[in-house]
């Protein structure tokens, strides 16, 4: 469980996060949605510790991550896995070496065990026969799957995904969304995904936070999302008039389908 308490972040005089409080529950897929520039990435970076909040607290299972020292932070960080927007795979390493990297760095497992673990997670993300390939030889979807494999190889308690569908075609996006959802349920981890892909919202939104201009404007799940009368949220989801008309015409059917 991750609790964000009144987190503020400013760059100079520009306040990007304006006091956000939210509870991300364990075993659930938590989504942060919002327009570009709404503060999603800054919030995610504050939670994982790449940015330090100007004010506020972030608790990982009750431990104040903002206040703790570097050594304690590193202990928590070994329980985090993160999927980056561009994959962030190490160019000079093969797929196998990329996924094995955290095991090489932080465990004393024998090489045979490490290889078994790598093959297990690569199989889990449906990436077989790619062990010897370099990131430059992979498609966007394969890079994302390698990134997920690397993020889960240490059995993390928390998984963070920054725009997991960016640059992917709709079909591959669905595959990645389903994979994130399955992994969250299977490993009972706390997943926080930063997205503006509406397919992800419908597929993975156990809990959804909507950010607008640095503030939390709405919180709920994928069913209540379509019943909300929050103007900014409606404008964000139904960006075009066509979508708004479609929603009005099929509103009841949509809600009953999502509720199932």
């Amino acid at each position: 469980m991750i609790e964000v308490k009144d987190v503020r972040k400013a760059f100079g005089t520009q306040e990007v996060l304006k006091g956000i409080s939210v509870l991300f529950e364990a075993g659930k897929n938590n989504l942060i949605i919002g327009k570009s520039g709404s503060g999603k990435t800054v919030l995610l970076k504050c939670i994982v510790g790449l940015l330090t909040p100007t004010d506020g607290h972030i608790f990982f299972d009750g431990k104040d991550y903002v206040a703790m020292g570097m050594n304690d932070k590193n202990e928590i960080r070994r329980e985090l896995g993160m999927l980056f927007q561009g994959g962030a795979l190490f160019d000079s390493l093969t797929v196998e070496e990329n996924v094995r990297f955290p095991l090489d760095m932080f465990t004393k497992m024998p090489m045979s065990e490490k290889k078994d673990r790598v093959n297990e997670v690569l199989k889990r993300v449906n990436l077989v026969n790619a062990n010897a390939k370099y990131p430059s030889q992979l498609s966007g979807g394969m890079q994302k799957r390698t990134g997920i494999a690397r993020a889960i190889v240490m059995n993390p308690k928390y998984l963070f995904c920054d725009e997991p569908n960016s640059g992917l075609d709709p079909q591959t996006s669905i595959v990645i969304d389903e994979l994130i959802m399955e992994i969250t349920e299977e490993y009972q981890i706390t997943t926080i995904t930063n997205t503006h892909d509406m397919n992800s919202v419908i597929t993975n939104g156990d809990k959804i936070i909507f950010l607008h201009e640095g503030s939390k404007h709405w919180e709920g799940d994928k069913v209540s999302l379509f019943e909300s009368d929050n103007k900014e949220l409606i404008d964000f989801i139904f960006a075009s008039d066509f979508l708004k008309e479609a929603r009005d015409a099929r509103h009841d059917r949509l809600i009953s389908k999502l509720s199932k």
């Binding site: 985090l80 927007q85 962030a88």
Partner: peptide, 17 residues
């Protein structure tokens, strides 16, 4: 610089390296 731009350094930091 490329590692910074492509978030490879961030990835290492998040691992606790």
């Amino acid at each position: 610089g490329t590692m910074r731009l492509t978030e490879q350094i961030d990835a290492l930091e998040i691992m606790g390296v």
